[in-house]
Amino acid sequence: MRKKVLILSEAFGNGHTKAAEALAQVISLQEPSVQIHIIEIGKMLHPAINDLVLRIYKQSITTFSFLWKKIYDHLSKPNHTTPNWLQSLIYQLLHRNLDKVLKQINPDIVICTHPFSSSSLSRLKRRGYRVRLCTVITDFHVHQVWAQPEVDIYMASNEEVLRQLVLFGISEQKIVVTGIPVKSDFWQKLNKLEARKSLHLKNLPTVLVMGGGLGLGGIKDIADALIKWKDDIQFIICTGSNQALKTSLENNVRFRHPHIVILGYVNIIHQLLDAADVLITKPGGLTCFEALTKGIPMLIYGPIPGHEEYNCEHLVGRDLAIQIRNKHDVDNWIEKLLLFPEAFKGLYENIKQFQQKNDPLAGAKVVLDLLAR
């Protein structure tokens, strides 16, 4: 009988689901007989509430960012555990009837790429539901909602996350450092000239600007800072699902230039990274891991309070990325790209060391080992 794997994500941004899709792809490459289901579970079970939670989240990280940061920092204290009321609230709002989905699919393993789904599965396990549960950490930092004793195996993005989980009381025997799953399109970097030709781009120094699937991260500020360089470089702006931002940029005469490309949500990020010399992005976990896997230098801007600030701290602290805070920083690094490209040498060397330690098959190996037990 074919083994069944159910991967649960949430529709809050795109990174968690992209990680789920990447893990599913790599499992299938290693063992095609495994039957895999991917569900954005909150959106499927309670779409109206899911959309409300997403709107509240976006409002919190923009209008009330100071409050969101306080909440996140509190949840990150290792001497705290997830309160039962919070787990119950997550379950009642987003995951009521989750048990019916599980009974219908009857998976051999459930994998969660978001702390909410992991929390609710853990709650069900405490109440008697029997299933092997694997949780994939999709950032370079964890908070207490990730840390659930009912999880059988954790896939940690790095050694620091492993240590943090241990501080939250998770046994080190349950944790495997696998990195964040990325699709095979990101495993190798293609020739820049060929990549630019295939995308009908100019063969110029190229900067890719991204703000994640939600199109956040101060993209407009970055675009305004880059506009003075439009005759010297080519820049590609990806606005994600932020259609209002895309329309605003397209309607602005300053951005109507043959060296400026404005895109919405696209599925060709791997090709754009092949064509780019530098990525300017907010530090979403999956986006940064994709860029590191491709070997692209990153300039990080506008981290969301909480997890992305910790992601930024991790990457910058290990010289895997550079943080830019204002227009002057943008000008400084674009000038270096054009006149002193050797300024990026240290980044390239550190990224290469990262790549040598990273095994893109590691996550699939963990799942297949668990299925074989």
Results as ranks from 00 to 15, higher is better:
221 D>M: 14
211 G>E: 08
225 A>M: 10
294 K>Q: 11
206 T>D: 02
176 V>R: 03
295 G>T: 07
205 P>F: 01
208 L>C: 04
312 C>I: 06
207 V>T: 10
186 F>P: 00
307 H>G: 09
270 H>W: 14
248 S>T: 13
250 E>K: 01
204 L>R: 09
295 G>V: 04
235 F>P: 08
231 D>V: 04
194 E>H: 13
276 A>I: 07
234 Q>M: 08
271 Q>C: 14
271 Q>N: 05
277 D>R: 10
182 V>N: 13
295 G>H: 08
223 A>C: 13
265 Y>G: 13
241 S>N: 14
186 F>D: 01
242 N>D: 05
309 E>I: 12
308 E>S: 10
259 H>C: 06
288 C>E: 04
281 T>H: 12
287 T>I: 09
273 L>V: 13
247 T>I: 15
300 I>Q: 04
180 I>M: 06
211 G>I: 03
309 E>G: 08
309 E>C: 09
199 L>M: 06
190 L>A: 14
206 T>W: 00
287 T>C: 12
218 G>S: 06
235 F>H: 03
282 K>F: 08
283 P>R: 06
230 K>P: 13
176 V>A: 12
223 A>T: 03
259 H>N: 15
276 A>V: 10
195 A>N: 09
259 H>W: 07
310 Y>I: 11
275 A>M: 02
177 V>A: 05
265 Y>V: 11
294 K>M: 08
289 F>K: 00
175 I>M: 02
306 G>D: 02
246 K>P: 11
256 R>K: 15
256 R>M: 14
238 C>A: 11
193 L>T: 14
213 G>Q: 01
273 L>K: 03
312 C>Q: 07
291 A>E: 06
282 K>C: 09
